[in-house]
Amino acid sequence: MFGKPSRTGRTLQYVALTGYLIFLGFPLVWLLSTAFKPPRELVQLHPTLIPSNPTVQNFVQAFTEQQLGRAALNSLQVSLASAVLTVLVALPASYALARFRTKLGTVALGWVLLSQLFPFVLLIIPIFLILRQVGLANTHAGLVLIYVVWALPFALWMLQGFVRNIPRELEEAASVDGASRLQVLRRVVFPLLAPGIVATALFSFISAWNEFFFALVLVKTPELATLPVALARFVGIEGTARLGPLAAGSLLATLPSLIFFAVMQRRLSSGSLAGAVKG
């Protein structure tokens, strides 16, 4: 693998890499191109890869006619609330998990792994019944609640890792200097934890923003639908000319997580976050 490959070997490697680039890249190019095509080019018999008269009309239309704007606002609301709540709830627990070894912590992390096995359909019916009982079915609050619970295990795992990276000695030094436990947390731990808090908040924001199944089942009122659900309903509307706004809306729906991944890209490709998926 690491020896000098022959010239044919190298050529083969580049051929393979090109193959991968085409497989991974062309569908993305097609989405971009469709999003900027005017209706006339969308319905023409033989579509082109690059739009000849690019337009932003599809973006305008996606927001005005298809009410994706409202769905995007709904998604923004739900995702922001989930992110803030997840961090607030996970913060104390992750501190406890990192600083004290308790059986409960092990049980909680074991649960994270176990729960991966179970299909959503087992969870969704009881959750639906519980939310209906407390009057939260078909509300954003109910959805936020589910997203927080769903993001919590991974958020806990992530945050406690960040807490562990803060040297214990710093806290000890502060308390030797006479700081109370609360002061130590506020002055020493939280400032150092800021990157971890941001990362955790981003993670739960993105998982709420992208989530589809719970949003589909739990929210029935069309006005309350989140962006993925609104887009999925939009797919049902036939007509080739509609593909433009659909592609435009899809692009916008991808933006937040694309930004997130761009920020995390270096860490992702270097593999230091690879453990994340094993959680």
């Binding site: 923003w209 992208n210 993925p228 659900v229 887009l231 999925a232 797919v235 899809s250 991808t254 997130f260």
Partner: peptide
Amino acid sequence: WAMPPVVVGIL
């Protein structure tokens, strides 16, 4: 990986 599953479907 960064795309929501619904968008991958649409794409």
